[in-house]
């Protein structure tokens, strides 16, 4: 379903850290364990992303973190060429995808599409997760995507 890699896709950008209010700590712990964990409401069972303190459907504050199938479909995409950060100035184009997760109430996640940066990208294409393990302070794991 998913695989992992030590290959660094976009080096030199700011690393993610769990928010200091604890809201998304389970997500980042999940990626380290190579699980894609998102919030689900204990009352109405709706998945939601990004994390919130309340279920947006029923307003319950009883939310749990569940591992979802690390697969989805490309909902939209872009290919940045202009480097907006000094770490990207020699990098050349790369692909950002917005992936819809049909097994989790169609929540959407942002990541990079791995492989040829100039590949043709088609909306609707099935993709699966590649967990990108990175050294940092502390070490962290990004959620990337590749065509299934």
């Amino acid at each position: 379903m998913s695989r992992s890699t030590d290959e660094v896709h976009l080096p030199g950008l700011r690393q993610p850290a769990a928010a200091n209010d604890g809201l998304d700590t389970p997500f980042w712990e999940g990626t380290r364990a190579h699980e894609l964990r998102v919030q689900r409401c204990k009352e109405c069972e709706l998945h939601q992303w990004g994390p919130e303190w309340m279920c947006h459907a029923c307003n319950s504050m009883e939310l749990e973190w569940v591992a979802v199938e690390p697969v989805g479909n490309i909902y939209s995409w872009q290919r940045p060429h202009h480097p907006v950060h000094r770490a990207l100035s020699e990098r050349g184009p790369y692909i950002i995808v917005l992936v819809e997760l049909p097994h989790a109430d169609n929540i959407r996640m942002v990541g990079n599409l791995l492989g040829d940066p100039l590949q043709e990208v088609e909306i609707g294409t099935p993709v699966s997760v590649v967990f990108e393990d990175r050294d940092g302070d502390p070490d962290f794991t990004l959620v990337q995507w590749e065509v299934t």
Partner: peptide, 20 residues
């Protein structure tokens, strides 16, 4: 967007992927 400090909250779900 510049800097090298860790990013947290909503930006953490986009910025490390070069979306800023």
């Amino acid at each position: 967007s510049g800097g090298s400090r860790p990013v947290s909250g909503p930006a953490a779900y986009t910025l490390p992927y070069g979306m800023m």
